[in-house]
Design a protein around this nucleic acid. Structure first.
Length: 571
RNA sequence: CGGGGCGUGGCGCAGUCUGGUAGCGCACCUGCUUUGGGAGCAGGGAGUCGGAGGUUCGAAUCCUCUCGCCCCGACCA
């Protein structure tokens, strides 16, 4: 592609609204342009990258035995009413009416659509299993779209749905998809982790998220340095005894009330009473659909609401409002404690290790000291806190490390939630009608491209992993007004194109500096610089974007040299 | 939804407090010079100041309403 003819508007300055590298660089490199909040156009360069991700995804999905379909972006309300999600989905689903006043939505996901597609057609266990996928636009009316393609409202997603006669078959496909996803992100050249995840509102029994590791990731991933167990920080279990627990040798004294006027937070109380935060027992009052409960964690720890929810088995869990706290504890917010509480008390296991703790006294401006779990209050103990760096792994007790990640893929075992609700059944070997067992597997295509940049860039611009790069190589004739330079360049360009190399050829009459800056910004892995200076020695420069390494290559060898490079990058 | 902020040539911004000829940098066009890391000089084109209403002799600037956007938080694949 000749740059002179290409629609590639690069920017010297960064857009004001771009906070993260991928967003900033995608705009500056002329890949995307914003049309509305969370809604973007893909320019030629951006589309080429997206197509690369799609290509890898298609190849691997096909290899895994899945078949491509497409389903509509606009879906009728009836489907969602059947599954019960028309009411449940909330404002994330953009709804509207057509001219006949019929209700529709922009598809935020396609479980209903695929179940509808399959239910009429699959009748027998002989036709199972089947895995269907599409690469399609979705719309989720995010409260706060941000970070460009990373968290857009309209976005491209690969979503696959599998249907099975048996649990074993569903689990086998789950493993198959796990392997497939690992291959996909490996082929994209990304550093990632497959982590255990919360299932969220899509439902289902268990799931894994695929996280591209990057410091700017929105999620935190706890991964074990010993055995490779990895989990979303929302879910990560903590093994053994927590680090830094306060085991005190001295006999605990008698429980005692002390005055702590206006001291509510852990910092205030521990500072005021001159005790370490780890000696405090933080008491949080929550409202659930089955009543008010208290949850305890050590003062230096953070409660993990997902874990608490799972232990309680409740669907809703919200911090109680002031009024409720007052009713439950008899004290204003900030002075709750487990001693004498009449509501169920749940405590993190770390609390048990506190031999002489400080808690709220359930009255204004007072705390209790020398509080001993077991002696002064009872609680149901469980793993309830958020994992921290260095905590022990539940499998092998080695230390966890916490890293940031960008969720690019998610696989779920769905079970029969949708097939039952929507009557998608088949006849088994015995002629018994049973609901189809489903799995669902998503990859954010645009987000994967963004994550690749987030993970691979420097101060000058993008550094594409070769498999995602919009071009194989970038040719820069330093001065197109120099006859010899132009001749060599044109010849090289034809030669490279001839052998199937995708070349971005900067044939513009610009100064060298301008072209170099653009080349660094766009981030194609290999740059070929042609100038009279090296032509005099019969060669051109080949520069690697990632390392900055420059080699002189004889003109007649360039085509072969570059071919070697991009064959190696192919996979 | 709560809190904070912003809408001024394509992009980044100043001007608004204190009303009086719409400005700067980048980008763009023309010419000359320059040509290995975002060139120099000269000339030029381009803006209903987000929109509507009001106050005023006069509004980018003051008032009212409205639309859009951004940031922090709650929420989320």
């Amino acid at each position: 592609m000749r740059l002179k003819k290409m629609f590639l508007p690069t920017l010297k300055e960064s857009p004001a609204d771009a906070e993260v590298a991928s967003h900033r660089l995608m705009v500056r490199a002329g890949m995307i342009r914003r049309v509305a909040a969370g809604v973007y156009s893909l320019l030629p360069l951006g589309l080429r990258v997206v197509r690369n991700v799609e290509r890898i995804v298609r190849e691997e999905m096909t290899r895994a035995g899945a078949q491509e379909v497409t389903m509509p972006f606009v879906l009728p309300a009836e489907l969602w009413k059947e599954s019960g999600r028309w009411e449940v989905y909330g404002k994330e689903m953009l709804r509207f009416r057509d001219r006949h006043d019929r209700e529709f939505c922009l598809a935020p996901t396609h479980e209903e659509a695929i179940t509808d597609m399959v239910r009429g057609e699959v009748r027998s266990y002989r036709e199972l299993p089947v895995n269907l996928y599409q690469i399609q636009t979705k719309f989720r009316d995010e409260i706060r779209p941000r970070f460009g393609l990373m968290r857009a409202r309209e976005f491209i997603m690969k979503d696959a749905y599998s249907f099975h006669a048996t649990e074993e078959s569903a689990e086998e496909e789950y493993r198959n998809m796990y392997e497939t996803y690992s291959r996909i992100f490996e082929r994209c050249g990304l550093e990632f982790r497959a982590v255990e995840a919360e299932t969220g509102p899509i439902g289902g029994s268990f799931s894994h998220e695929f996280m591209v590791l990057a410091d700017t990731g929105e999620d935190a991933v706890a991964s074990c340095t010993g055995c490779g167990y990895a989990a979303n920080i929302e879910r990560a279990e903590i093994g053994g005894r927590p680090r830094g627990s306060t085991r005190v040798v001295t006999e605990p004294g008698k429980i005692e009330k002390v005055s702590t006027p206006g001291m509510k937070s852990v910092e205030e109380v521990s500072g005021f009473l001159k005790v370490r935060p780890s000696a405090l027992i933080k008491t949080l009052i929550y409202t659930t659909e089955s009543g008010v409960i208290a949850a305890l964690v050590r003062g230096d720890c953070e409660l993990n609401e997902s874990k608490l929810k799972r232990v309680l088995g409740t669907a809703t869990l919200v911090l109680a409002d002031e009024e409720t706290v007052k009713q439950a504890t008899g004290a204003p917010v900030g002075f709750a404690g487990p001693v004498g509480l009449k509501i169920p008390v749940y405590a993190d296991r770390g609390v048990k290790d506190i031999t002489s703790g400080v808690t709220g006294a359930n009255e204004a401006d007072a705390h209790l000291v020398n509080v001993v779990p077991g002696r002064d209050f009872d609680a149901t103990y469980a793993d309830l806190r958020v994992v921290r760096e260095g905590d022990p792994c539940p499998r092998c007790a080695a230390a966890f490390e916490i890293r940031r990640g960008i969720e690019v893929g998610h696989i779920f075992k769905l079970g029969t939630k949708y097939s039952e609700a929507m009557g998608a059944t088949f006849l088994d070997e015995k002629g018994v009608e049973r609901p189809l067992i489903m799995g669902c597997y998503g990859i954010g295509i645009g987000r994967t491209a963004a994550a690749a940049i987030e993970q691979n860039h420097d101060d000058y611009g993008i550094i594409w992993p070769a498999p995602l790069s919009p071009f194989h190589c970038h040719m820069v004739p330093v001065n197109v007004n120099d006859r010899e330079t132009l001749e060599v360049s044109e010849r090289l360009y034809s030669e490279l194109v001839e052998q199937g190399c995708e070349v971005l050829y900067d044939d513009r009459d610009e100064r060298a500096g301008v072209k170099f800056k653009d080349a660094d910004l766009i981030g194609i892995p290999v740059r070929i610089t042609i100038s009279s200076r090296t032509i005099a020695q019969g060669s051109v420069e080949v520069k690697e974007r990632s390392s900055g390494e420059v080699r002189l290559v004889r003109i007649e060898d360039v085509a072969r040299d570059i071919r070697g490079l991009f064959d190696k990058g192919k996979n």
